[in-house]
Design a protein around this nucleic acid. Structure first.
Lengths: 208, 208
DNA sequence: TTAAAAGTTGACGCAGCGTCATTTTTCCGG
DNA sequence: CCGGAAAAATGACGCTGCGTCAACTTTTAA
């Protein structure tokens, strides 16, 4: 009877409630951040929204900053498969860029849908930006996509890091302004961003 | 003898020390932010760095957030004349864009010079972005410059808000990556950003 | 069945908050 | 130059949120 021992992979009651508590805290935090804004939120506010004790919070996160980081990381993790899908379907660089921008702007609109319904004024006023592992992974993926998809004849000495940074900078800033307009027009933002980047690419090389 | 009464314009001891105290607080805040990071900083930390009493701080600012906003606003205010200069010298759109990017990247490099010498790791880790009046003014100025300088034949239905947003997004994200490289190369970032934007412009219209 | 390991709890001491009655400094008309 | 009024600075005070930890409960596995 000494065959395959039970592999202890998240089957126990322990692991179950651990994951549940973690999710509970994250959800509570999302709710409070959305209601009163990130800066104003205290760890106690988050705890109150759960039915956990103060001490328990600190078994999961060190601070509200860490909670925020986890939320951001999770967001990026949810976005990653969408990007993967775009990559799979896209035939050529231009299609990829267009699809990636559309995916991002749509994602942004969806994520902020509820926050936009209720008047959450803090959305743009104070912006906290974190750089999580998942986000770095997204950056790196896009950089590799760019390197792979761009015809090396057109841009021999391309600085893919800068180009990726520029593409993401456009996405972020344009995304903010897109959300500020009513109604939110994902297609328009997509067209604008992709046209700009694709045409801009042709001006780049400067092989001095 | 009843001629010109002393114009009460910041000549008194009162106004002098008021300005001095304000500057003192701002400088202390800059120092603490740079040393231990924005999030970790407390109002008390800032006060300790000055020789003012706790209560005095609140005569000038409501919170550390407001201090940060003032610092950011001041930065933007310092940048504005540089941009004005670029505008005055520039002949045509392309020269303006190029000059504006150079001015920004140089400004960024200068401002972060000391922070880069000492290893200030928080520079990129947690980024807090505020939107101050001066910053909005810079945005609006650039938007107007763009509207004025772009040949209406080339881009009849240009969305100048989106274009400005894109230009600024490129500047911000590219700026971060420029600072992360050693040595910091302002000219390279300038060339990259302006080439991209200027060429990108030609792809924009999409007059559907 | 049981004992050790893992996890939860909430009260506690402490630090930072913003206020405000009091004191100090500056201003200005006489 | 004086004196009182206005402006500004002071720091002690009450309060709130912080992170910890010894005691307690639940889960695990032998």
């Amino acid at each position: 009877m000494g065959e395959a021992m039970t592999i202890p992979l998240s089957t126990g009651k322990r692991a179950q409630s651990k994951a549940a508590n973690r999710q509970c805290i994250l959800e509570a935090a999302r709710s409070v951040f959305a209601r009163i804004g990130y800066e104003a939120t205290t760890v106690r506010d988050i705890i109150r929204e759960t039915n956990l004790a103060a001490g328990t919070f600190y078994n999961y996160f060190k601070s509200k900053e860490e909670v925020f980081e986890a939320i951001s990381d999770e967001s990026a993790a949810r976005f990653r498969p969408l990007l993967k899908d775009v990559r799979a379907r896209a035939d050529g660089f231009e299609e990829f860029i267009c699809g990636a921008y559309r995916a991002y702007f749509q994602f942004l609109a969806d994520e902020n849908a509820e926050a936009l319904d209720k008047g959450a004024p803090h959305v743009a006023l104070i912006g906290v930006r974190v750089d999580t592992p998942e986000m770095q992974a997204v950056f790196e993926e896009i950089r590799m996509d760019i390197e792979r998809m761009i015809d090396p004849d057109e841009a021999p000495q391309l600085d893919s890091e800068y180009l990726t940074a520029a593409a993401i900078g456009i996405a972020r800033e344009l995304g903010d302004h897109m959300l500020a307009r009513s109604p939110v027009d994902v297609e328009m933002a997509t067209t604008f961003a992709s046209s700009l980047l694709i045409a801009g690419l042709k001006g780049l090389p400067d092989p001095s």
